[in-house]
Design a protein around this nucleic acid. Structure first.
Lengths: 270, 270
DNA sequence: CAAAAACCATGAAATAGATCAAAAAAAATC
DNA sequence: GATTTTTTTTGATCTATTTCATGGTTTTTG
């Protein structure tokens, strides 16, 4: 199938599930379609890994179907932007697979990663004029894209969706406040331990031995997230490895060998 | 007037405005009424300095009057808590005068001030089980206190109030993200300059010469807010004074002599 | 209003983390 | 699949900020 044939208009006529399958296959095979072409109808939500956690989970039946047709599935390759801080808000996104970093840049190039977003997480604002950050894929990523006005409309009709969005915003506030403690008062070891612990707990595998965490992002992303330099991140990870708290089979994978000790280190109890 | 006479029940029978006047007078005169007594009916909103900015500004007429009767005006003296992080959420607050610090404490005593709240600002959460932070007065402070369930009820009926709360939450997120850049990537000078610039811009006096800022909080609160030590805060303020960007007539007052230079320093352009 | 306590400013010393440098490993490109 | 480029790791040095210490102010309290 040529990329021309995968144009949105044409895709709208085809079976949704079939299309996403094609999409993902073409994507995985590494074909470098131009960015504007990588936009497809959203396939049904019941088979979607992100749905349960995502904002769309607040809708059901017809309302959900209707909402879904307003969205587009979009593919973003490593390093590509979803949008920039300076842009007017037009869409908001839900991450389906992969991961996105949210960045703020100072004029001299210093960068702060404000957060990472993965499967089921929301990216982007829904009101106010401009986005609050640059959003970029840290690895090949698939997102659902919805026009903000559709969200607004849907929210007027659905108290469930309103409640869900409020809850998401509240969690965002809570997370940012926690991160504030980390940035302002924690040591490098505490920072890295907290970061790894948080990623581990996202996997819902607490209690198990040898929790395997994937670090989709590079060391410099971690550094800019934790307010450190790349060198300090690298050294600190090495230190945790030397202390047998973690294993590091590859730069993008970490195995937590002692989750309790990791938790102890994260809160600076030792 | 005795404190007994100022009991809430009795106060309910009196004229609201009269009561707040008494309240504030008694408060200013430094009388040390027990904390449980410092709770009064809320006087009418039209004469309230905080109302325009506060969440209650989204209500009008009868709805506002009704809501007001559900609240209490409360006085908190320097250093006294409004609530602690460990407490179940029961009330949320609007600051009428004075200022409140929101803190997170690590087990070994390290502290991060997550934010300050002043006239018109909201303090406290409205859902989830526990508060996210300790809230304490940094100077003598007056707040309005509302049960969270009243807010919930009112929100069901008032789309305006829902919208207002969402906007407040969005601003909170935006502010926290900005603070994240400051904590993760800015130098002490940039941090202090940003802090002073932000406080100046809250006063809506931009463009004027010699903007007078009051620092209700102590140096250690500023330090814990900016991720610095008291000593560095003190030294950095002295440096800005030496460079004639600010004057420091007293420890709790700063006069901005060169707001442009302050802005330049805040973003690290120099 | 005087004594005590808390707070603020500043100097000297110590150090944690940054910067600089270079090799090793991994990923991207032709 | 070999070559270039980027990323990661590790070592050595340096410096900005913290820590420690002290004196001067301001604020609190009895």
């Amino acid at each position: 199938m040529t990329y021309e044939a995968m144009d949105v208009q044409e895709n709208l006529l085809r079976n949704d599930a079939e299309i996403l399958e094609d999409t993902v296959t073409a994507f995985r095979s590494g074909s470098n379609m131009p960015a504007r072409k990588r936009l497809y109808p959203v396939s049904p939500c019941d088979s979607c890994a992100a749905h349960k956690k995502a904002i769309c989970s607040s809708l059901e039946g017809q309302a959900l179907d209707r909402f879904r047709t307003k969205g587009r599935t979009r593919i973003i390759k490593v390093g590509e932007p979803l949008f920039f801080e300076s842009e007017d808000i037009r869409y908001f996104y839900t991450v389906i697979s992969g991961e996105v970093r949210l960045c703020n840049i100072l004029e001299d190039g210093r960068r702060q990663v404000v957060g990472f977003r993965s499967c089921g997480d929301k990216v982007g604002e829904h009101f106010g004029g401009k986005y609050l950050y640059d959003a970029e894929a840290v690895c090949d990523t698939i997102v659902c894209q919805f026009p903000v006005r559709e969200l607004e409309m849907q929210m007027q009709q659905s108290p469930e969706m309103r409640a869900k969005l409020m809850k998401i915003m509240q969690e965002e506030i809570s997370e940012l406040q926690q991160h504030t403690i980390l940035l302002g008062r924690k040591t490098p070891i505490e920072k890295i331990a907290t970061f790894l612990k948080n990623r581990a707990s996202k996997l819902n595998l607490v209690g198990e031995e040898n929790i395997e965490i994937s670090l989709s992002m590079g060391r410099s992303d971690i550094a800019d997230y934790l307010g450190l330099t790349v060198e300090t991140v690298s050294r600190t990870i090495s230190k945790l490895k030397a202390e047998k708290v973690i294993d590091v089979p590859s730069a993008h994978a970490v195995v937590v060998r002692d989750i309790q000790q990791l938790a102890v280190l994260a809160d600076g109890k030792k």
